[in-house]
Design a protein around this nucleic acid. Structure first.
Length: 419
DNA sequence: TCTGGGGTCCTAGGGCGA
DNA sequence: TCTGTCGCCCTAGGACCC
């Protein structure tokens, strides 16, 4: 049996843990630069705030409904996520952290166990340890566990936020209840195509011929169909190093000069290189892109990316910045208002098996230098050591007007209780 | 004036050598 | 030497996820 544990309105719940006055109040969380809504509490959903809503367009609704608006605080969410995952890992040795707020757990040999009781215990423990409410779905496959979880979340009173699909009758009932567009793995395009075939529920989908699904939705679709039929086709995924590392940001204001863009791109390259070193990997290829604001059709539009290769695999910020700037120079065009840029590290390999190059070698001083910089930045925080290309004299940062304190990761932000 | 960021997997199709 | 076929590798793009 698989369990899918999902935190309820995770980002909003994180804010509530340290500010209990927010219980029962509508909350929205905004994306970087306070651009658009990326998370909502149930109360905010009830006010009609859609996912992805541009914040500036909904400002009036926020005020009218007294909605509490927060900038995203990923340091807080990341730390709360690891606390939740840590608690859940006590219940099964087989666990896959699927996303920041979701985990699959495998319970081998638990078929005759009282899973409802186990689920309720998992819920109680997680809430007690972290303050974050969760919903839990149990089923024989991952795709069915997703559906069981959805039911638990939708009917918290009837299910006590724990639902189990453990009989054929319950499976059929759950599939009939699930709209095709809500099935895990069915996106907009497939849903459209399926509806044209008169497939409106997950149950309808399982009645399609295998050959049709294989032809139109490839092996991924077929695997999903088997999962919904109760035949496990997806196992827990082992933890793997990232195959690409992307660092991309929109700017707070449009940029026009190569100098300004170089600063940003250098910083993104350095952030990427740090992530690369954290997972003990090297990369030999990177992509740089830049783009104007697609929402400003009155301005000339430009998007370009370029892939550049390094002669040997490297994890040195110095090499990676040099490469990124080289790429940027080639795609930069003057007389445009740039809104976004990014650096994506690719061709990532573990650092134990680095392929050497006959003609060019890495600088032997770099590994030690990088290790020292990482160590200083880790102990002092906030990127105290900077590279010259990041422009030391200038400060630019995201717009985060409603940023909450880092209650759990910054000693200065620890909550104080007045008696 | 303001519209996010970071991933994975799969397939089609072209280049290329055997 | 030319041509057809097959399989491998690579890349671009689509579709999906949170």
């Amino acid at each position: 049996m698989f369990a899918l544990v999902d935190c309820n309105n995770f980002y909003a719940s994180c804010q509530r843990v340290f500010n209990p006055q927010l219980q029962g109040k509508p909350i929205v969380i905004l994306s970087n630069n306070d651009g658009c809504v990326i998370a909502r509490s149930n109360e905010a959903k009830a006010c009609g705030i859609p996912m992805g809503a541009p914040a500036f367009e909904y400002k009036k609704q926020f005020e009218e409904h007294n909605i509490h608006v927060f900038s995203s605080n990923f340091a807080l969410y990341g730390d709360m996520s690891s606390r939740v995952m840590n608690t859940l890992s006590q219940f099964s040795p087989d666990m896959e952290v699927y996303s920041v707020d979701e985990a699959f757990l495998k319970f081998t040999g638990f078929e005759h166990f009282d899973l409802k009781e186990l689920g309720l215990k998992m819920r109680r423990t997680t809430t007690k340890n972290t303050g974050i409410p969760v919903s839990i779905g149990f089923a024989p496959t991952k795709a069915l566990a997703k559906i069981a979880n959805k039911i638990a979340k939708k009917y918290p009173l009837e299910t006590r936020a724990v639902h189990t699909i453990d009989t054929e009758e319950k499976r059929i009932k759950a599939l009939r209840w699930t709209k095709i567009e809500d099935v895990w793995g069915i996106g907009k395009k497939h849903a459209q195509r399926l509806k044209a075939q008169n497939v409106h529920t997950a149950l309808d989908f399982t009645k399609l011929p295998d050959a049709w699904v294989r032809k139109n939705m490839h092996v991924v679709g077929l695997r999903l169909k088997k999962e919904l039929e109760g035949l496990s086709a997806l196992d827990l995924e082992p933890i793997q190093n990232k195959k690409m590392i992307a660092t991309t940001r929109s700017f707070d204001k449009p940029l026009t000069t190569l100098d300004e863009l170089e600063e940003r791109v250098a910083t993104y390259a350095i952030l990427g290189a740090e992530k690369l070193r954290r997972q003990n990997s090297h990369c030999q290829m990177l992509m740089v892109f830049l783009q104007t604001n697609p929402h400003r059709q009155d301005q000339p539009q430009y998007y370009r990316n370029i892939v550049v290769n390094h002669p040997f695999p490297t994890d040195s910020s110095i090499d990676i910045v040099r490469l990124a700037k080289m790429g940027l120079k080639q795609i930069f065009r003057a007389n445009h208002f740039y809104k976004k840029a990014g650096v994506i590290l690719m061709d990532i390999t573990p650092n134990q098996n680095v392929q050497l190059n006959l003609f060019s070698q890495s600088n032997p001083k770099h590994p030690q230098l990088m290790a020292t910089i990482d160590k200083i930045n880790l102990s002092l925080g906030n990127h105290k050591v900077k590279f010259a290309s990041q422009a030391l004299d200038r400060v630019w940062k995201m717009r985060q007007e409603q940023l909450s304190p880092n209650y759990t990761t910054n000693i200065k932000d620890i909550i104080t209780i007045k008696l």
